[in-house]
Design a protein around this nucleic acid. Sequence first.
DNA 1: AAATTGACTAATTGAACAAATTGGTCATTC
DNA 2: GAATGACCAATTTGTTCAATTAGTCAATTT
Lengths: 191, 191
Amino acid sequence: MAADRKKWILEAASKSFALFGYKATTMEQVAKIAGVGKGTIYTFFSTKEELFDAIMMDVIQEMKRIADKVIQEERTFIKKLERVLEEFYRFRSNHELLIRLSHEISEMGTAKAQEGMKSLEGAILGFLEKNVRTAMEQGEIRPCDPQVAAFVILKMYVSFVHDWDRTHGPLTKEQISEFFHVYLFEGLAVR
Amino acid sequence: MAADRKKWILEAASKSFALFGYKATTMEQVAKIAGVGKGTIYTFFSTKEELFDAIMMDVIQEMKRIADKVIQEERTFIKKLERVLEEFYRFRSNHELLIRLSHEISEMGTAKAQEGMKSLEGAILGFLEKNVRTAMEQGEIRPCDPQVAAFVILKMYVSFVHDWDRTHGPLTKEQISEFFHVYLFEGLAVR
DNA sequence: AAATTGACTAATTGAACAAATTGGTCATTC
DNA sequence: GAATGACCAATTTGTTCAATTAGTCAATTT
């Protein structure tokens, strides 16, 4: 049945991309893992790229479900923000495919892998932007451009967990929370 | 005379690194441009890496001189900050060697080139940290960790001129100034 | 008739090997 | 004593041919 085959192909491809990365995954191999003929893959996906895109979309949907759940569990914007960022980071750090893609990007700079991770970042930014807008409309934060705010928030977070980590060692949740409080919420200006 | 030869070597190497990058620059070539024997280079610098380090130090000193001049010309911390960041960015964008090294890093990921640009970033952070500390001691900004503040300031600036630029197009000086004002100085918290 | 398969092919990648190059050394020359 | 450039082990590069791969489609199966 066609619906089954598509599902097998998606599962097989997800496994192969996670194990071997984008570039080293062959369609022959995906077909073998899925237990179908290679040509069958092309009845559902025109190209290897389209297959990869479909899998990235699934990953992004999954990540969003987790983030939505976290949002329901917290009350204040700042708490929601911290939890969501933490969850995004954990998701990205534990997800086999995403780990593999990051590795492939730094080792080989594969364009498609970069594109995949960029779409993930775009989804995170979109999610943050939506929540900034809500918080702003509810008067929880001051008026601002939600898109820019989301950008600043994410870049700051990523800088702490990646760049600072590399030069000074890892930060605790409490330290990151404190930094967000001082530099993003209260600001540097003297009152 | 030895002092002359060292100067010629430094000038020749600077030219070669700027034209060909770190990896494709050969000591034979540096010697030829400088008009000395290859072995002469090794009377001043033990290795190719040491020669490169010496040149990066010169570049960093030059950049600091420019930044110090800018600091003298402005009155308030925020103005100093914006001018200095702008100057660092301009310096980096117009300096042939730095342009070439950036290109080499993205095309080939040469470790030594990366190391060179990291030492540049380290110098910028040190400079910013010193000035944050001064502003804080003078009561111009609220108490904070100068090292973290410098880090946040630089990462935010670089995110705007690089990442935002790539996805949304270039920002004007005024826009960046406004974003620093809203997100870093005033903060998002409702008063 | 529709769905599936896997052999086929042009384009790309990888492996093997010899030639060329390079950073560093040092005997010779100035 | 300072400077030079030939030398050399290690590395890189270029070439060639074999192997591989994404996509295609005639043949087979359902």
